[in-house]
Design a protein around this nucleic acid. Structure first.
Lengths: 239, 239
DNA sequence: TGTACATCAGTGAACGCGCGTTCACTGATGTAC
DNA sequence: TGTACATCAGTGAACGCGCGTTCACTGATGTAC
């Protein structure tokens, strides 16, 4: 974690060992799926007796939680960096950059994507107090973007001004208050759809739902991302 | 399966037993997640010794495959029925009916949804020759709807005429040919997005991604479904 | 309608397996004086 | 700088568990004559 506070070789070794365990556990996820993660297999791969792992990780569930935390943090950092790489008023550029960052991260971390956004892991319940906050980084980033879109006051294609029913309006109002942003019902609801569709696109690609149909995933994804950007009222960008 | 061909009590009992096994297996999925399905647990619940289950199911993997087949078939039948309940030229009505049927089915069968559209089950690979065909029923139904939309020649909001890059164009052309339908690149790509977003919406709801944000799921879903319908060029429908 | 044989459902014991986790231990690394 | 003690990494054996699957068996249900 705080590798700058490490002084003795033993501490350095410990940090390294924990990193190794996580890396090997990730590979296990890759090879077998989220539920097959086993401390014994990790120990075997580490070249160490199974009980030795308990020096570093208190339990299997704890290891899973650590992997989930790290996954959300890694994805969150990647998207935040992508967002920060564009000027704040380059709204469409930010949307595109964030979307691509999400997909790129997924392509580079398939097992983690499955762990975070696939179905639940059997016999394991993630402790909310540790996973909700890091799991919200991407959505908060998107919400911030949507708020900036709202602030710019771009006109939205009237065609898509779908009326918001009352019970949904209540949810959206509460959401606005919780987040402390100013945004119309219409734009917020468009944002939620774009957020959902973005993750849906990535999950469909990662879980093989497009098999037999789409092969040019890069082009396909960029294309749909652009369409969604337009749905947000962002003018198309020349390539 | 073919309960009309059943003659003897023994055969009737056999059909019943297989149905019981599947039902109990589904409940197991519900309680523990997709990977925790165990023949022994099923036998226990059935009030029978574990080896007895092998009279009806050749192996655990086979049981999983059967559940997946049944799941796709059940979802496919529900959506096809919903589609057939509207006049063929009621395009928006069909889109709405199909979308709601998908979500209703998911709400009524959470574990099956996870099995079909969640991450992969560890240590298990579904045999494509048995799961691809039933798994395509919903997408084929949607494709048929999109083809009908194309045939009607409804005007699409120009705002959203996003240009299709060349590699994606090749995919779309191949898809058109495979399916034997006439549809523009633009509309087909919109259709793919709507299909993806529809399943993304349901998965986000089922997997708890909206937790803390949306509570009025019925209203939210209908609202977004309507928005997606508009993206397909279907005029908004009065409620 | 009655009997002889074949088919099937379900039993109970056993196999080998991998799992998470505990515990007493050895030996190496670090710390305080 | 050297020594005595504390801390820690890793070992090896063991625990109890649930799993998938096989196999020889008993007894009930069906079928052919």
């Amino acid at each position: 974690m705080h590798s700058d506070q490490v002084r003795t070789p033993r501490q350095r070794a410990r940090v390294q060992a924990i990193a190794d365990i996580k890396r090997i556990a990730s590979e296990q996820l890759a090879n077998q799926g989220s539920a097959a993660l086993s401390l014994r297999a990790v120990a075997r791969e580490l070249g160490v007796v199974s009980s030795a792992v308990y020096r570093y990780v208190p339990s299997r569930d704890e290891l899973l939680t650590m992997l989930i935390e790290d996954g959300y943090d890694s994805l969150g950092a990647a998207t935040e960096q992508a967002d920060a790489s564009r000027k704040r008023d380059d709204l469409r550029g930010r949307w595109t950059a964030i979307g691509r960052a999400v997909r790129d991260w997924a392509v580079q971390h398939p097992p983690e994507w499955g762990l975070l956004y696939g179905g639940p892991v059997p016999g394991y319940q993630a402790p909310p107090e540790r996973t909700v906050a890091p799991g919200s980084r991407v959505s908060l980033l998107l919400i911030a973007l949507f708020a900036d879109v709202a602030a710019t006051g771009l006109p939205l294609c009237d065609h898509f001004q779908v009326p918001v029913p009352r019970p949904l309006h209540r949810d959206l109002r509460a959401l606005r208050q919780t987040l402390g942003i100013e945004i119309s019902d219409d734009l917020l609801s468009r944002g939620l759809l774009c957020w959902t569709a973005l993750f849906g696109l990535v999950s469909f690609e990662m879980f093989g739902q497009y098999r037999g149909g789409i092969e040019a995933f890069d082009a396909y994804f960029d294309h749909q991302l652009s369409r969604l950007g337009t749905l947000l009222g962002l003018a198309p960008m020349p390539r």
